Simulated assay, not measured.
Amino acid sequence: VLGMVGEMELNHLKERQRAGIEAAKAKGVYKGRPVRLDHKKVREMAAQGMKVSAIAGQIGCSRGAVYKILGS
């Protein structure tokens, strides 16, 4: 029974948090995390035929970050 009450409270907390974030986005206050890498440059380098490891080394990020940019 206590587990069920805890789960219900967690759901209510998440709903209130989601509502607060949506309200902040509507006001233009909440914009998310700032972009650290230049996505356009990464895509240009990939279009030139550079390998992911070389792009990551030149930009100073992980290969996973490069893959994430190229996948989106």
Rank of each mutant, 00 (worst) to 15 (best):
V1M: 14
V1F: 05
V1I: 07
G3V: 10
G3P: 06
M4A: 15
G6N: 15
G6W: 06
M8F: 11
M8H: 04
E9C: 04
E9W: 02
L10R: 15
H12L: 15
H12W: 07
K14T: 07
K14R: 14
K14S: 03
K14G: 02
K14P: 00
E15V: 02
R16S: 07
R16M: 07
R16Y: 03
R16E: 08
Q17M: 13
Q17P: 00
Q17K: 05
Q17S: 11
Q17C: 02
R18A: 11
R18C: 01
A19C: 02
A19S: 08
I21K: 01
E22T: 09
E22W: 02
A23M: 14
A24C: 05
A24S: 12
A26W: 07
A26K: 15
A26R: 14
K27I: 01
K27F: 08
K27P: 00
K27C: 06
K27S: 04
G28M: 01
G28Y: 11
V29Y: 11
V29W: 11
V29F: 01
Y30M: 08
Y30D: 04
K31S: 05
K31L: 10
K31M: 05
G32Y: 03
G32L: 00
R33D: 09
R33K: 14
R33W: 07
P34C: 10
P34D: 07
P34A: 09
R36T: 13
R36H: 04
R36K: 11
L37M: 03
L37R: 01
D38S: 09
D38K: 03
H39F: 12
H39N: 10
K40V: 15
K41N: 06
K41S: 06
R43W: 03
E44V: 07
E44W: 00
M45L: 15
M45K: 06
A46P: 00
A46E: 06
A47P: 01
A47V: 06
Q48L: 14
Q48R: 14
G49Y: 01
G49F: 02
G49K: 08
K51Q: 13
K51A: 14
V52E: 11
V52R: 14
S53R: 14
S53T: 08
S53C: 09
S53V: 15
A54Q: 15
A56F: 04
A56K: 09
A56P: 05
A56T: 11
G57F: 08
Q58D: 07
Q58M: 09
Q58C: 04
Q58A: 10
Q58H: 11
I59V: 11
I59A: 05
G60T: 03
G60H: 02
G60F: 00
C61E: 05
C61V: 12
C61G: 09
C61D: 03
C61P: 04
C61H: 02
S62W: 12
S62T: 15
R63Y: 09
R63S: 08
G64Y: 10
G64E: 06
G64T: 09
G64D: 06
G64L: 04
A65F: 03
A65G: 03
A65C: 11
A65M: 12
A65W: 02
V66R: 02
V66L: 03
V66S: 05
Y67F: 12
Y67I: 11
K68Q: 14
K68N: 13
K68M: 07
I69D: 09
L70G: 09
L70T: 03
L70S: 05
G71Y: 04
S72L: 10
